[in-house]
């Protein structure tokens, strides 16, 4: 999988590149508008992570340029601006997703994976992770080939953890993923805990309790 990260803030860009490289992506990076245009023109990427404020130009212009060029690379905009108009402008120009800074890398990862699944999925909507099989269309879960019922939130949580499998996902990231960005809601961590508890219980009943690990009060990890 090839990824292009266009972000002027070198430190943030490096974090994104590191995270995705660890996940097995092939990452290219660009720090300016010109560099971004050049790389996007020269290669085909599965996904482009695009900042809006760039030295030399605007990320939305870059997106416009790409789409006019009939380039179909998946694009996820990352921006410090979270006005609805910016979001709509980005999506209107053909962005696939929009994420507001600051975001969790696990959330960005989930968005990239979802985008890739949507865009390049081979028709099958089943996601496999170890002994788990998630049917994304039917929202059903098979553990060791037997159906286990999960609530909507538990399903979303499981999907998020599978997307970020073998990595520690912080409680904050889970809370934001489940409750949305605008949740002025640090209290929701307690509820993340209770979802995790239920999830673990259901997995344990099928003998998969060890898959889900708590990491010292930091977060959780789904080991495959």
């Amino acid at each position: 999988m090839k990824l292009l990260v266009i972000e002027d803030e070198i430190s943030l860009r490096q974090s994104i590149v590191d995270y995705f490289t660890q996940s097995g992506f092939l990452c290219e990076q660009a720090g300016t508008f010109q560099e971004g245009v050049q790389k996007a023109d020269d290669f085909q990427y599965d996904c482009i992570i695009l900042d809006i404020n760039l030295p030399g130009g605007n990320g939305l212009q870059l997106l416009d340029h790409l789409r006019k060029d009939k380039k179909t690379d998946g694009v996820i905009i990352i921006s410090a601006r979270d006005a609805v108009e910016d979001r709509i402008a980005g999506l209107d120009l053909g962005a696939d997703d929009y994420l507001t800074k600051p975001f969790h890398l696990s959330e960005l990862n989930a968005r990239v994976k979802a985008l890739i699944r949507r865009k390049y999925g081979s028709g099958s909507s089943v996601l496999e992770a170890g002994s788990l099989k998630l049917d994304l269309a039917a929202k059903t879960v098979l553990v060791h080939d037997s159906l286990v019922s999960f609530t909507k939130n538990e399903f979303e949580l499981l999907l998020f953890l599978i997307t970020n499998q073998n990595r520690v996902v912080s409680r904050q990231a889970i809370a934001e993923h489940l409750y949305g960005e605008q949740t002025d809601n640090l209290a929701s961590f307690d509820f993340v805990y209770s979802h995790i508890k239920n999830l673990k219980k259901k997995l344990k009943e099928k003998g998969c309790g060890d898959m889900l690990q708590a990491v010292y009060g930091l977060g959780y990890k789904l080991v495959v």
Partner: peptide, 17 residues
């Protein structure tokens, strides 16, 4: 402030891994 916050958050995400 959003950008430095985003950097700290991303570094923390890397650090916990």
């Amino acid at each position: 402030i959003q950008t430095p916050l985003a950097i700290i958050r991303s570094k923390l995400d890397l650090l916990i891994n």
